[in-house]
Design a protein around this nucleic acid. Sequence first.
DNA 1: AAACCATATTGAAACGTTTCAATTAGGTTG
DNA 2: CAACCTAATTGAAACGTTTCAATATGGTTT
Lengths: 348, 348
Amino acid sequence: MARATIKSIAKETGYSVGTVSNALRGAASVKSETRQEIQAVATRLGYRVNMDGLKLRTNKSYRIAVLVSVSPDAAEEWEGVEFTRILAGISAALQGSRYEMSVFNVADIPDAMTTLARIVQDGLADGVIFSGTLHDDPRIAFLQQHAFPFVTMGMSDSKMEHAYVDFDSQAAAFDATARLVRLGHRRIALVNPPAELIYATQRQTGYEQALTDGGIPIDSALIFNGSTTARTGQNSFDALMRLPDRPTACICANEAMTLGVLSAAHAAGVRIGRDLVVISTDDLQLSRYFVPPTSTYYVPIEETSRLLGEYMLKALDGANPSETQKKIRATLIERQPDTPALHTAPTK
Amino acid sequence: MARATIKSIAKETGYSVGTVSNALRGAASVKSETRQEIQAVATRLGYRVNMDGLKLRTNKSYRIAVLVSVSPDAAEEWEGVEFTRILAGISAALQGSRYEMSVFNVADIPDAMTTLARIVQDGLADGVIFSGTLHDDPRIAFLQQHAFPFVTMGMSDSKMEHAYVDFDSQAAAFDATARLVRLGHRRIALVNPPAELIYATQRQTGYEQALTDGGIPIDSALIFNGSTTARTGQNSFDALMRLPDRPTACICANEAMTLGVLSAAHAAGVRIGRDLVVISTDDLQLSRYFVPPTSTYYVPIEETSRLLGEYMLKALDGANPSETQKKIRATLIERQPDTPALHTAPTK
DNA sequence: AAACCATATTGAAACGTTTCAATTAGGTTG
DNA sequence: CAACCTAATTGAAACGTTTCAATATGGTTT
């Protein structure tokens, strides 16, 4: 039993293929009784549009490209990003639309650029979603220049407005820092993503603002940038321990970095929660299983990525950028007792 | 400048579309000079086949469905599976072929079954890849019944041969257990995935065999099954501690479970490496950052998943199942000193 | 009753590809 | 030279869809 097509419905109902096509798309030119009759037959026969025919005719791809970065240099490392959940959220949002999600693995920014060029030129997709926005992001510039629809995870510094879903990293960093300051900490380290990332700057801004509000001078020796891996956390901790005036607290950007800090602290015999208070941002709710568990600012990743998909559909529908922008606040989950700063810094 | 098509190449070369089509596919019926001439023009014009036209004509989808399980009940948990790397491996293998990878999110087995039904009936894909094979796996039965090509990550107990890539879980569990037995451990716990998974059985078989070889009785109170999450590790540890005769070692199935055990041990004041030796299997190389780091049997996940893609292509090419089956050995990475079993079990 | 209008439907072309029967050209055999 | 064979190429149909000019139908206005 072959799949029902417009042609088979035409034969069944006696109308022409043109009418059936128009009826199925709910065109006003078709008399409403006719439309209902045709639609009834269509559902009876279990008609589902053949996207290949549709795409061929319309020259649209009905595809949303999702750029997923798999950096080979971090192959031996874990970057703490659960892309599965992001993809799940996006495809959930696309459910019911004619669009489907298509995953494009990219290694780095140049690779992303060539991929985007292919997508735009060869019409591989009708829209793009990607994350990790940079300062002067070349991907955004390219897509805007070609008037190609896209949604980013993370906002940008582009002059031109565009669709995005962002975490309020600045607010989270501010809150975390202010909280530590209130507890009496004056030497607070920031373990941050690479500086070219917009949200690294956002975090640093929030951090510095809270310090300034608390009358604490900013010390660049306490700020670290690196890939969001455990190794970076480890390296940062080791560097911190070499400082003459050691920090009593540390704010990490994600679970992987936190894990690295805890790991290095354990190796160095530094007691987390007493000698060093660690607080981080968290998508996977993993920090509750750390030794010891750490307090985190939690962001619901799946819900967030559903928004990515929804905004993509809106953008393809020609929506105004202002309707497709959202900043999501993280919520604090406390797992460590509010430990005040100790007066004496730990000695190795 | 529109994209080159067979038609435009026909016009350019003076041959008919039929000849061009045959030439581009390297058909022997086309004279070799003609073929070369046409192919030269094709590359000059940057011709790339339009898959929509191709698919419409051939009624093939040129698509490989990858079933990715995103269980909503584990939404708040981390299952320790890095699907990003799996997808990257598969799409790397598909690179250069005409096939593309398509991600299908499924919540559970029934959901997977309806998804598979749609894939098979509506021709959504030409082949399927999925992981987590079960005893009497209904997915495998369904696909075999419909003679639909597929490759599994993990072998099955199906009577009919099929393509798979598997880790040698049994060997890894055997080695791990035997190693602990050599160190004098006699009470060894096994923290295992749900029993319906084939590899849970494989692990248990290896474990029991090593115990039997060492003359140690098998105690079912030391065997735990549950989702591969940190919570399961935590729960297992708590149950272990309630036993009158506590274990001195524990073998975990993945990083997430290991993390849960470490976390619970920390909470209970049990010293890992002294009171309890933990060893696990590991895909992400994450265990080296645990507190304390744990020894693991490591499986290179990206390379493994590239095989999944390669076998899929072979299977679509009608390859014999025997050419598309592989069992991969894990390699031991030691991170804890070889701690012998203590005589006195820890008291809480 | 002729002319016009609005509404509903039709028919055919087009998107890019493969496939296959039919055709052509050239060579070999009887 | 007629008949046949082989090799190379052509032409057209088909896949499922949209789109749009053309047509048909019936009603209203002049």
